[in-house]
């Protein structure tokens, strides 16, 4: 078993798939010769040549649109949009085209493609390098949306995504690229080295799409979360001593509602935690589904801890980011809430 950072795990997934399937191609801004601004594709062009791994013009609708044309031909493109904040020019291509080809052509044409994009904050990226737009994709029928939180899951899920016959939006929490992050920016950065989820097989394996992961077993409450917030939740649990169960969704759509509902039925209290803005965020959908499934088991109102409904600020990042202190406080409130 190799030790990998999330960057290395993502690179390894593409490496494995480029090697196994001649129809896989990788392209995006700066991904070719240079290997990507986050190095996720480093060395792949050298290994597989510029017709399999190449640079694209700065044109996100073109990256996704060309990928759709390639998928219609029969390739399996795995494209990179350099930051999730840059994905909006491609939104029409993702929503109206990639997500709809199979349906509108009755299966004659499909968009078997993966759209990778780094998301989330915690890197002082300001409002154009920090956003978490996952709810814009979970709202779209025909798409699958994945947010991994560990190197092991990132590789296994990315391989599943590339092999999937439907379009997948694969959002990579960039704050987790080099190590887990508990939400304490003042503490030394951690590395994936030595972390059990940093043990990653070098060969092909998959993590199934649509299955959540139990991060921590607990009885007092359920924290439903994904991405960077998995580690913030762990920190909050350890700092408050509240015995909360933590569920990492991994795949937002299709949603593993059974795992969530089973946990909430057991604990009776539920916190939904994400970095993205609150109103119409994915937490709203989670909250609705959890009350539909677990209303009579709930001992307190479901609580959402999220980014504020503002653009992502630069200097005030740590007041915006739902850190362990805010999560811990809300968790304590949740436990104190009357049944």
């Amino acid at each position: 078993m190799a030790q990998m950072s999330m960057i290395e795990a993502i690179r390894s997934a593409m490496d494995v798939m480029l090697g196994r399937d001649e129809n896989v191609v990788v392209f995006g801004e700066d991904v070719g010769y240079f290997g990507g601004v986050f190095r996720c594709t480093a060395g792949l062009q050298e290994k597989y040549g510029p017709t399999r791994v190449f640079d694209s013009p700065i044109n996100e609708s073109g990256i996704v649109g060309a990928g759709i044309g390639m998928a219609a031909y029969g390739l399996r493109p795995c494209v990179e949009v350099q930051f999730a904040d840059y994905i909006y020019p491609a939104y029409d291509q993702i929503v109206s085209e990639a997500a709809r080809l199979r349906y509108r052509s009755a299966g004659q044409f499909t968009a078997s493609m993966t759209i990778r994009s780094p998301c989330g904050g915690g890197i002082f990226g300001g409002q154009t390098h920090s956003q978490s737009p996952e709810a814009l994709f979970t709202h779209v029928s025909g798409l699958k949306t994945i947010v991994p939180s560990t190197p092991y899951d990132a590789k296994g899920l990315l391989i599943s995504a590339i092999e999937d016959d439907d379009p997948v939006v694969f959002l990579e929490p960039k704050r987790l690229y080099n190590g887990p992050f508990d939400g304490h920016p003042d503490r030394p950065a951690q590395s994936w080295a030595g972390h059990p989820q940093g043990d990653v097989p070098e060969d092909h394996y998959t993590v199934p799409i649509g299955k959540a992961r139990l991060v921590r077993d607990g009885f007092d409450a359920t924290i439903v979360t994904y991405g960077t917030m998995c580690f913030v939740a762990e920190a909050a649990v350890s700092e408050t001593g509240i015995d909360a169960e933590i569920i990492d969704l991994r795949t937002l759509l299709p949603l593993d509602i059974d795992t969530i509902a089973n946990s909430v039925r057991k604990t009776g209290r539920c916190m939904i935690l994400h970095e993205a803005t609150r109103t119409s965020g994915f937490g709203a959908e989670l909250s609705a589904q959890i009350q539909e499934e677990c209303f009579y088991n709930l001992e307190a109102p479901i609580v959402r801890v999220t980014g504020w409904d503002t653009p992502y600020p630069h200097a005030q990042e740590w007041q915006y980011f739902p850190g362990p202190e805010r999560v811990g406080r809300e968790l304590t409130n949740l436990m104190e809430a009357a049944s």
Partner: peptide
């Protein structure tokens, strides 16, 4: 752009 992408695939 799909036409261009499809043609790129044919060339690839």
């Amino acid at each position: 752009i799909h036409a261009v992408g499809w043609a790129m695939a044919s060339a690839i």
